[in-house]
Amino acid sequence: MNDTFGLDKDELVTRSKAQMDRMFKDSDFTLEQKLALTCRILYDAGHDSGLSGQITARAQVPETYHTQRLGLGFNEITATNLLLIDEDLNVLRGDGMANPANRFHSWVYRARPDVQCIVHTHAIHTSSLSMLEVPLEVAHMDNCVLYDDVAFASNWPGVPVGNEEGEFITAALGDKHTLLLAHHGLLVAARTVEEACVLSMAVERAAKMQLIAMSAGQIRPIDSTLGHEARDWINRPKRNAVAFSYYARSALSRHADCLE
């Protein structure tokens, strides 16, 4: 066995990443199953707000997306009741209609070719924090997956069904993967469904921690170099896939029907 006690941190990080990539497989879930699982995972984590909130993912045909049907809650989404829509929200496959608020998703997808999945929810702690009109503060190692990657929109543009709201939200997001919308909720624009799920979970937990910390005193910032280092350690495709599999196992113990 190699003696690792003389290695510096960079070498140990590199070795750990390589080992993780070798040891863990990507999931066998289909894209639709990942979306349904994400809905159930977020529902269980407090992201439920009736019929508010949307999830979309790019489909194989350009300018088309998978999304949930308006009228169904996150706890009712299955791999088979998702819709296929175009960027004008016309239904190409499935029954029912898309949420009219999905319009801003089309604006984000147009502006961000790197984005493959978008989650928007009114999670309880994130929404509560948004009422204070303060940005999300990432000041704990568990939340560093979000470090320097959370934009903030201090103005509420109203119901996001118009093109104006799509332009506003897209501009506010910029090149980040997460956005806190004042008086509204969270937006995650991710490179994979797994990343979208992990970041959405992280935003809600970070908001909860921030509210608790703010009630006790002043939040102290963490070192920027270490924050970026932690983010790059956590927010990797393989790490997100492993985390998603953990969340999925938990969700399936309660929502086996979502894979039907």
Rank of each mutant, 00 (worst) to 15 (best):
D21E: 15
L173G: 04
D257Q: 14
L226F: 14
A190D: 06
S49T: 07
G6I: 14
Q19N: 12
D175A: 05
L35V: 11
G53C: 09
E260F: 04
I222V: 12
A207Y: 14
E87L: 08
E137N: 02
L12A: 09
L186V: 10
F244G: 01
K176Q: 05
R249I: 08
A139G: 01
K17W: 10
R69P: 03
G166R: 08
V203G: 04
P237L: 04
C258L: 02
A153E: 11
A36S: 13
L70V: 07
R220H: 15
I219W: 07
M214C: 14
F104C: 07
S106N: 07
K25Q: 11
H183Q: 00
V193F: 04
R231W: 06
T225W: 09
Q68E: 06
G217K: 08
G50E: 08
L132T: 06
G53I: 02
K17F: 14
T225S: 05
D95F: 14
E63S: 15
Y109N: 00
R58M: 04
L82G: 08
A251F: 02
N90K: 07
D88E: 06
A98K: 04
V119L: 13
M214R: 15
E164Y: 07
T38W: 01
S154D: 09
D28L: 14
N102E: 02
D88M: 09
E167F: 13
T170K: 04
T30H: 12
A182Q: 01
T78C: 04
F5R: 06
T14S: 12
V145T: 08
S16L: 05
